[in-house]
Amino acid sequence: MRGTTVLPGTPCVTPSNGQPPVHRLEIRLPDDVPFAVGTFDGIGPLSRADFPHRHTFYEIVHVTRGSGTHVVDLTRWELSPPHLGLILPGQLHHWENAQGLDGSVVLFTPEFLVDHPGDQELLRRIGDHPWLRLDPAAHARTARLIAELTEEYGHGDAGFATVLRSLLHVLLVRTARLGAPEGPGREQPPQGRHTAVADAFARLLARTGKDGAAECPRSVRECAEWIGVTPGYLTEAVRAALGRTPGSLLREARTQEAQRLLARTDLSVRQVALRTGFDDPAYFCRFFRRETGMSPGHFRKHHTEHGAEQHAKHRSKHRSKHHDRRAASIEAEAGPA
């Protein structure tokens, strides 16, 4: 499973160099199914974690009640339920001032999608609109699907993993529709080899290391070599499938990862440059200013006041014995809801 799942009782990845903790998904024995679903209470306290952390897996949240804010990377989503949200592997997120939070959580790894490889493209599309407010009809449909997932997961009957994958596929298809443009120009999923190459490129940009941080490729040529196509064909395929050039998407991915590291870690600018594929810190600073309009130092000063407050709060909790035990637990205390 390429290290994305762990046996019950395995601790989370130990943070280093000021990095936030990285949570992995506990597999269900004896089936080794990298999937979990349940209520916030059923999944466990870390489903409401108020300190920044990353996952090595996908998380879908269906919020039915509560107030507060869900923070993903540098974007703040105010709660006004019902909502349906998606957190991608490697994204930094936490809940802030959450009161009365209720609903369901669906957790799964990329490997779980083996029966439906097209679901990677659906997740990419949902990631373009990752936080949706549901109308009554969409809310009811979503609740029914998640209830079926919960029932199937809880019973664990023969073939339940295949049923879970099928139900999850339906959930992803319907969620992707909610975030798609409306009208005669409604986006249609691209087909053929262009789609496969664009999917591979998107997975490459979303790739994370063992500590959950993004591993940004350095160039379009490097991406093309990894995928096994020419840079020209990669540009053609990505433009046809996604409507943008791979160069612009790569710059965006590197910029976003640099922003995450500057705002949420204690890494120096030189260390952030190296982590995002820049050997020359001065060139990194010029790149960052060109992409964001401000220097790395100015960005960190502007965006870390709130982050420092959260970090101090987390460190205070971490010193307590209770939090020490919880910090060593798995994000998904996987079990029947």
Results as ranks from 00 to 15, higher is better:
residue 255 T to Y: 05
residue 219 S to D: 08
residue 264 R to P: 07
residue 240 A to E: 01
residue 286 R to C: 02
residue 244 R to F: 09
residue 260 R to A: 09
residue 216 C to M: 05
residue 288 F to M: 09
residue 241 A to M: 06
residue 261 L to C: 10
residue 259 Q to A: 06
residue 231 P to W: 09
residue 231 P to A: 13
residue 273 A to Q: 06
residue 220 V to E: 03
residue 294 M to S: 04
residue 254 R to K: 15
residue 266 D to H: 14
residue 291 E to W: 03
residue 216 C to V: 08
residue 230 T to G: 12
residue 252 E to P: 02
residue 216 C to Q: 04
residue 252 E to Y: 07
residue 284 F to A: 08
residue 253 A to M: 02
residue 223 C to S: 12
residue 225 E to H: 01
residue 255 T to R: 07
residue 243 G to A: 03
residue 242 L to N: 06
residue 226 W to S: 11
residue 230 T to H: 00
residue 297 G to M: 03
residue 253 A to Q: 05
residue 268 S to M: 04
residue 246 P to I: 01
residue 226 W to G: 02
residue 262 L to G: 09
residue 268 S to I: 02
residue 245 T to K: 01
residue 217 P to C: 06
residue 253 A to W: 05
residue 216 C to A: 06
residue 246 P to T: 07
residue 253 A to E: 02
residue 291 E to C: 03
residue 249 L to E: 00
residue 264 R to L: 08
residue 271 Q to N: 11
residue 287 F to Y: 06
residue 225 E to W: 00
residue 248 S to N: 06
residue 218 R to I: 11
residue 214 A to G: 15
residue 266 D to S: 15
residue 230 T to D: 03
residue 213 A to H: 15
residue 298 H to I: 14
residue 219 S to R: 10
residue 285 C to K: 15
residue 216 C to D: 04
residue 240 A to C: 02
residue 283 Y to K: 10
residue 239 R to V: 04
residue 303 H to Q: 13
residue 232 G to Y: 01
residue 226 W to M: 13
residue 301 K to E: 07
residue 222 E to H: 05
residue 221 R to C: 04
residue 222 E to C: 04
residue 266 D to R: 12
residue 227 I to D: 13
residue 251 R to L: 00
residue 261 L to Q: 12
residue 301 K to A: 09
residue 261 L to E: 10
residue 255 T to M: 03
residue 300 R to T: 14
residue 302 H to G: 09
residue 219 S to F: 00
residue 237 A to M: 05
residue 270 R to H: 14
residue 296 P to A: 13
residue 210 K to D: 04
residue 246 P to D: 02
residue 252 E to H: 08
residue 230 T to Q: 08
residue 289 R to K: 13
residue 221 R to V: 11
residue 287 F to D: 11
residue 287 F to H: 10
residue 296 P to K: 13
residue 300 R to N: 07
residue 270 R to T: 13
residue 292 T to H: 07
residue 270 R to E: 14
residue 211 D to M: 12
residue 294 M to D: 00
residue 221 R to H: 02
residue 213 A to S: 13
residue 299 F to T: 01
residue 250 L to H: 05
residue 266 D to G: 13
residue 211 D to Q: 12
residue 279 D to T: 10
residue 293 G to F: 11
residue 239 R to I: 07
residue 254 R to H: 10
residue 280 D to F: 03
residue 249 L to M: 04
residue 235 T to F: 05
residue 227 I to H: 08
residue 222 E to V: 13
residue 274 L to P: 01
residue 223 C to E: 05
residue 252 E to L: 09
residue 219 S to L: 08
residue 255 T to S: 03
residue 235 T to C: 05
residue 243 G to Q: 05
residue 271 Q to G: 12
residue 265 T to V: 03
residue 297 G to E: 03
residue 236 E to D: 06
residue 250 L to A: 04
residue 243 G to V: 11
residue 242 L to G: 03
residue 257 E to Q: 15
residue 234 L to V: 08
residue 211 D to T: 13
residue 277 G to H: 11
residue 294 M to N: 07
residue 241 A to R: 05
residue 261 L to N: 10
residue 292 T to P: 02
residue 214 A to M: 14
residue 230 T to F: 01
residue 232 G to F: 02
residue 281 P to A: 14
residue 281 P to E: 11
residue 259 Q to V: 02
residue 220 V to R: 00
residue 212 G to M: 03
residue 228 G to C: 14
residue 220 V to M: 02
